[in-house]
Design a protein around this nucleic acid. Structure first.
Ligand SMILES: [Mn+2]
Ligand SMILES: [Mn+2]
Ligand SMILES: [Zn+2]
Ligand SMILES: [Zn+2]
Lengths: 134, 134
DNA sequence: TCCTAAAGGATAATTTTTATCTATTGATAA
DNA sequence: TTATCAATAGATAAAAATTATCCTTTAGGA
């Protein structure tokens, strides 16, 4: 189990036990909704307030310690900030996976077509995962 | 101003005045949040209920008459269903534009890397539009 | 024109998220 | 170590967003 004390501090976040637990939960579970994160946190902190979850999620987002992933037909999930990547969503089981795709050519195309100065991409590919296909 | 009576019926939706107005609002404004749609609808139907907006948006989504577009750091917007396309979001002015991009090669890459059966893509490119750059 | 399921409006209820308040605590420096 | 204090946690209220309920009206077909 990783120690997120310093990483939290680097993001100007005090390393409280609750925050360390959030970081670890995200680390081991990958992508989590507020709801499921709260459920997991309750196991460790039986009297943790849902407000604490929200306050921390929002602060962690502001300080880019975590990222929000908006999914079609599902609640948002949150993850530790890593190198930019895309997502695969299984419409059958709801599982979310990371996938590293090179979007440079797409961004080039968009640049030419739009005159936008593009700074960020959010891509979710929805479908059916291998397990659910069988 | 387009007549959406038949298109609504093709989607198993009764062509009520409220629904026709929603369709026209989406047609002329492109992408709208619940909030702004409600504001526009109030001009035509001074006593329309917000519940009517929600009920219709949800039904129209179920019957694929409209689509939801989830945006980073912003409320969802809704649009009439058109041929699949991607979106540009200006982080400065909040404007949302359609953009047609060929994602085939990306989907191919994802297929190889993931063994997912991909059926849908949701791509939002965020940046600064031409107008806001000046 | 009549009939009826579906839809609209009013409003309550529920769900989700944020704000407020006080006690506690993590981080810093003496 | 210990003292200090801004930041945080938890409890709870409040606000915002969404859905449910109930009754009246209406679109669309017979
Ligand atoms: Mn991810
Ligand atoms: Mn669009
Ligand atoms: Zn699956
Ligand atoms: Zn702009």
């Amino acid at each position: 189990m990783n120690d997120y004390t310093n990483i939290l501090r680097e993001h100007n976040l005090k390393a409280t036990p609750q925050r360390l637990a959030i970081a670890n939960a995200l680390c081991t579970n990958g992508h989590m909704s507020i709801e499921t994160l709260y459920g997991i946190m309750l196991k460790k902190f039986s009297s943790i307030s849902l407000a604490t979850i929200y306050k921390n999620i929002n602060l962690m987002l502001e300080n880019t310690f975590i990222q929000e992933v908006k999914l079609p037909n599902a609640k948002s999930v949150y993850e530790l900030t890593k190198t930019p990547h895309s997502h695969l969503l299984c419409e059958a089981c709801g599982n979310v996976e990371d996938i590293l795709l090179n979007l440079n050519s797409i961004i080039e195309d968009a640049l030419k077509a739009s005159e936008f100065q593009i700074e960020k991409t959010d891509l979710v590919l929805s479908g059916v995962c291998k397990k659910c296909r069988k």
